[in-house]
Amino acid sequence: MQHKAPRRTRERILELSLRLFNEFGEPNITTTVIAEELNISPGNLYYHFRNKDDIVNSLFAQFEAEISRMLAVPADRRPNMHDVWMYLHLSFELVWRYRFFYRDLSDLLSRNRKLELHFKQILAHKTKVAQQLCLGLRDDQALVATDMEIDGLANNIVVVATYWLSYEYVRNPRQYTEQEVMADALARGCYQVLSLIGPYLRGETREVFEKLTAENLKKLR
């Protein structure tokens, strides 16, 4: 039991910090607030984390591990439109779970060199996966685009997916933490990314695209 208690306190600190950062923004939350919310002393918190940046870096390590597991194309077959759809939804769900990174991105990167370097790697990885998905569709003659167009498309996909929640926050800052409102925002984000791909699709894949986007739009309130 003596070995488990410190780990449990550390987990509670991370869980609460993530919730507070997501709800109120990382710049507005201090280690004092976190300690008070957990009903522990500041010294107990500092036993597990040296400062707030240490908490942020630990949360980012969790995020990085999750996104690394998610960012993969099928190894045994060519990707299809359903793979693209699933990739987008999982991406947006993960962004939502760690949304403070995206909402406060510029501020965080400007003062955290480690975060800056690792986030660049994540963006590069996302772009590579988007390229691989598009190339796979092209190899299957489901997408018609040049290499240059695919490069541009992959970058646009990553830009929209990365900054979509910031855009939604500007549109509805007072409703940003409401789950139902943001479920619609995430669905709109998926549609916006798919709309970038749509003009390049052909044949059956185009039909699947139209069906998926129609179903997605019906769910919006």
Score class of each variant (00 low, 15 high):
Ile67Asp: 10
Arg69Tyr: 11
Arg69Gln: 13
Met70Asp: 14
Met70Val: 07
Leu71Trp: 14
Leu71Ile: 10
Val73Asp: 02
Pro74Val: 04
Ala75Val: 15
Arg77Ile: 11
Arg77Asn: 11
Arg77His: 10
Pro79Ser: 02
Asn80His: 05
Met81Leu: 14
Met81Cys: 06
Asp83Ser: 08
Val84Pro: 04
Val84Thr: 07
Met86His: 11
Tyr87Gln: 15
Leu88Phe: 05
Leu90Gln: 13
Phe92Ala: 04
Phe92Asp: 02
Glu93Val: 14
Leu94Phe: 09
Trp96Arg: 15
Arg97Lys: 15
Arg97Met: 13
Tyr98Pro: 06
Arg99Lys: 15
Arg99Ile: 15
Phe100Pro: 09
Phe100Gln: 06
Phe101Arg: 14
Tyr102Val: 00
Arg103Trp: 06
Arg103Val: 07
Arg103Glu: 05
Asp104Ser: 09
Leu105Asn: 02
Leu108Glu: 08
Leu108Thr: 04
Leu109Cys: 06
Arg111Cys: 11
Arg111Gln: 15
Arg111Trp: 02
Asn112Leu: 08
Asn112Val: 05
Arg113Tyr: 14
Lys114Ala: 14
Leu115Pro: 07
Glu116Arg: 15
Glu116Val: 04
His118Trp: 07
Lys120Ala: 07
Lys120Arg: 09
Gln121His: 05
Ile122Asn: 03
His125Tyr: 03
His125Gly: 07
Lys126Ser: 01
Lys126His: 05
Val129Asp: 00
Ala130Gln: 01
Gln131Gly: 07
Gln132Thr: 03
Cys134Met: 04
Gly136Met: 01
Leu137Ser: 00
Leu137Gln: 03
Arg138Thr: 00
Asp139His: 01
Asp139Leu: 01
Gln141Val: 02
Gln141Gly: 00
Gln141Lys: 08
Ala142Thr: 00
Ala142Phe: 00
Leu143Phe: 01
Leu143Val: 00
Leu143Ile: 00
Leu143His: 03
Val144Trp: 00
Thr146Glu: 10
Thr146Trp: 10
Met148Lys: 11
Met148His: 08
Glu149Gln: 11
Glu149Val: 05
Glu149Arg: 03
Ile150Tyr: 00
Asp151Met: 13
Gly152Tyr: 06
Gly152Lys: 10
Leu153Ala: 05
Ala154Tyr: 06
Asn155Tyr: 00
Asn155Ser: 08
Asn156Ala: 08
Val158His: 01
Val159Asn: 08
Val159Gly: 02
Ala161Cys: 04
Ala161Lys: 03
Ala161Thr: 07
Ala161Leu: 10
Thr162His: 01
Thr162Glu: 03
Leu165Arg: 11
Leu165Val: 07
Leu165Ile: 10
Leu165Pro: 07
Ser166His: 10
Ser166Gln: 15
Glu168Ser: 12
